[in-house]
Amino acid sequence: MSEQITSKSAAAIDRAHREGRAALIGYLPAGYPDLQSTIDAGIAMARNGADLIEIGIPYSDPVMDGPVIQAATTEAIANGFRVASVFDVVRGITEATDVAVLVMTYWNPVVRMGVDEFSRRLAEAGGAGLITPDLIPDEASEWFAASDKYGLDRVFLVAPSSSPERLAMTVEASRGFVYAVSIMGVTGARAAVSSSAEQLVANTHAAGAKRVCVGLGVSNASHVREIASYADGVIVGSALVAAIRDGGVDAVGQLTKELSVGLQKPAAAATTQEEA
């Protein structure tokens, strides 16, 4: 992992570690139901225990997303969402809080704006970096250059299907943290956390990653508690999107608070788990 650039995401995760817990990362798509709500909900997440926030760019062809996020992003686009407004959302949250704000985006909107231009504007807005679900390091040369130039984090994904060679290569390419996909599938709530997640986190750590966060299918405090016992951070998406859909900004704050309870656990237990 390249560390010569100060990583905002890494700093946020390390701050949580110093408090003896894993980091909580919350996702919401920009512009759902409107831009101001996304900003307000981001602030509510930050004030209720989230350490990092992912703001998604609604995209016409979200192949890694399940029904809840698809429905939200489709509605945001139908309501006139424009890609450049994601920078306003990032700025609105970073100005009001001290959380790290990452943008999660499919790659074509970045290509269309220009990778350098997009990166420049994201850095200017105070953003920490990008999570790129359909960009693998093999295709990311432009993004390497721009993220180095503007000091942005590069969060690539690893999956249970990733080979040891690809794990090593992806860890090397990432900055901030590595996003471990808990299960083979798309985003959305699931009854239980996949057992493949723990092994993947262990393998990714063994491949040299300092920080590995787990996402996909994490929807309640019990999931958070389970994952927090072996990962550096826990990522929650669809459950928060369902919360803003059904109960607005207040419900997002409430759910974040409940989820963050899952992070609080005896430090001794955490140590045992990590050593195991």
Binding site: V63, L157, A159, S161, T170, V181
Partner: peptide, 14 residues
Amino acid sequence: GGRWMPESLIAALD
């Protein structure tokens, strides 16, 4: 061309 795909599918493509 190339592979602008989620990492989850790279093993299957390989």
